[in-house]
């Protein structure tokens, strides 16, 4: 699989990353190479094989629906880079 610049741009946007030109060029090369290596999996016949999604034996794990407060608002906000006493602060989202 050969990755082009357009694909790298699209993937970077989906992953919420901005890449330098140098990084883009490196990723074009590296991702192409890694994906070519991964194409080896095409050699195996997977007809009729179900994807393995859960590694646990229990599918539904239920617990009583009770409200438990374990983290205070102060604690939840304690690591925020930008906040006031009650909220996380972000840049303005809605334009006037």
């Amino acid at each position: 699989m050969k990755i082009d610049k357009e694909t790298v741009d699209k993937i970077a946007h989906l992953a919420r990353l901005v890449l330098t030109e140098e990084e883009k060029n490196r990723f074009i090369e590296e991702l192409s190479e890694i994906l070519s290596f991964m194409e080896k999996l095409g050699e195996l016949d997977t007809t009729g094989v179900e994807p393995l999604i859960y590694m646990n034996e229990h599918v539904n794990v239920l617990r009583p629906d009770e409200v438990i407060q374990e983290i205070s608002r102060e604690e939840a906000l304690s690591n925020a880079p930008l906040k006031n006493e009650a909220y996380f602060k972000v840049s303005k989202v809605i334009e006037k």
Binding site: L41, L44, V49, E50, L52
Partner: peptide, 14 residues
């Protein structure tokens, strides 16, 4: 082509 196939092969390996 990638993710779902890899999950199938994970089953074969397991």
């Amino acid at each position: 082509a990638y993710y779902s196939r890899a999950q199938k092969i994970r089953r074969l390996i397991k």
